[in-house]
Nucleic acid binder design. Sequence first.
DNA 1: GCCAACGTTGGC
DNA 2: GCCAACGTTGGC
Length: 151
Amino acid sequence: MAYWLFKTEPDTFSIDTLKAQGTACWEGVRNYQARNLMRDEVKLGDSVFIYHSSCKNVGVVGIATVSREAYPDHFQFDPESPYYDPKSDPDNPRWIMVDVTYQRHLPLVSLAAIKANPALEEMVLVKRSRLSIQPVTEAQWQAILTMAEPG
DNA sequence: GCCAACGTTGGC
DNA sequence: GCCAACGTTGGC
């Protein structure tokens, strides 16, 4: 069982949207390193922190689980989609997605709080913030849970 | 809106 | 394969 952090811009897709949908496909990942993680390492039943980026309150806002492993992201073939990729071959799709299922909200654990916690200084979020699909260690997972729900 | 970090593209 | 130009991410 592995742990992950998935970033989303809440103006486009928030934890509340995920809660309303229950299960949602995580489309639009267009970065090779993030794609490779989803393709090779994100497994059914893994736990995921949902992280809101590019908004007023950036940070971890909830938990989901992986409910379907990698399959082609059909938006790459849709010219109307912002995720359209004309260079992707339908016989060999370049981009994939996974499905996630809502578990629960957490009280916001802000990026500033994460950066201020010495136990989290090795987090990918802190060291290499731009990756949109990130591995989280069990220790990091527990540390953030404790920050969200002390005691 | 600014801008630093960093990923991608394309000429050579 | 190098690297400059360019585009995107994302915090602030």
